[in-house]
């Protein structure tokens, strides 16, 4: 279980609260959808859960233990812009091995070509680089994956391909996913019923039933 209890966060003591009293929980193998307009603290919440930011109040636990403060974090986040999530001076093979070496079957499934390995990030297109960023976290040390607008910049075909692979990985390895997106049809596709969360203006989490398609 990945649990967040009573999270509060602001970027500075004189700045407004971005995350207020958030509580949520997700289990291995579940896909939780998170939807809200821009500026409602979705990405901040994602960063808190992945250990990029420390909550001002409240706590995050993974199987009743706090997140490890060093080493590979079992909660990984994939951002919208892969260009900003990889080291621009590293070649692709080094980027892929930054955490734990990825499994070959996922490289194949994502359509990652061996000729990309010796290239630099700027020599790949956005869709190609996002697949690298995703392949990097598809290893057995990842327990929860936060997909923050992971496919918003990509064409429909690449989006479908990536979600196919990520969903298969999550099911096989019992990885829980939190999908942050504006795309209602996409969330309808990947989330289990009753697993769609909307952030409200008062910033409290509220479960919304999945609309029937």
């Amino acid at each position: 279980m990945l649990k967040a209890e009573g999270l509060w966060f602001r970027y500075g003591t004189h700045l407004p609260w971005v995350v207020r009293e958030q509580t949520l929980a997700t289990a291995p193998g579940d896909v939780l959808g998170l939807m809200a307009p821009s500026g409602y603290g979705k990405t901040t919440l994602g960063k808190l859960l992945a250990g990029y930011l420390i909550p001002s109040q409240g706590r995050i636990t993974l199987d009743a233990q706090p997140l490890p403060s060093r080493g590979y974090c079992p909660v990984q986040i994939v951002f919208q812009n892969p260009e900003l999530a990889v080291n621009p001076r590293w070649r692709i093979d080094r980027i892929l091995r930054e955490g734990h070496p990825p499994q070959l079957q996922y490289l194949d499934a994502l359509g990652i070509h061996s000729s990309w390995m010796s290239r630099y990030p700027h020599e790949l297109s956005g869709g190609e680089l996002q697949r690298i960023a995703i392949a990097r976290v598809l290893n057995r040390h990842t327990r929860y994956l936060i997909a923050d607008e992971m496919t918003a910049m990509l064409d429909a075909n690449t989006q479908a391909l990536i979600w196919q692979v990520v969903s298969a990985f999550a099911q096989q390895s019992g990885v829980g996913i939190i999908a942050i997106s504006h795309d209602q049809p996409l969330l309808n596709r990947i989330c289990q019923p009753q697993a769609m969360i909307r952030l409200n203006r008062d910033q409290s989490l509220k479960y919304a039933p999945k609309p029937t398609v």
């Binding site: 429909a156 049809p185 309808n188």
Partner: peptide
């Protein structure tokens, strides 16, 4: 046709390759 089919509100299937 493949692009249309790959939309989440349609079949959500992708063509492999690049």
């Amino acid at each position: 046709q493949a692009l249309w089919r790959s939309l989440p509100q349609n079949e959500f299937v992708a063509v492999s390759g690049n």
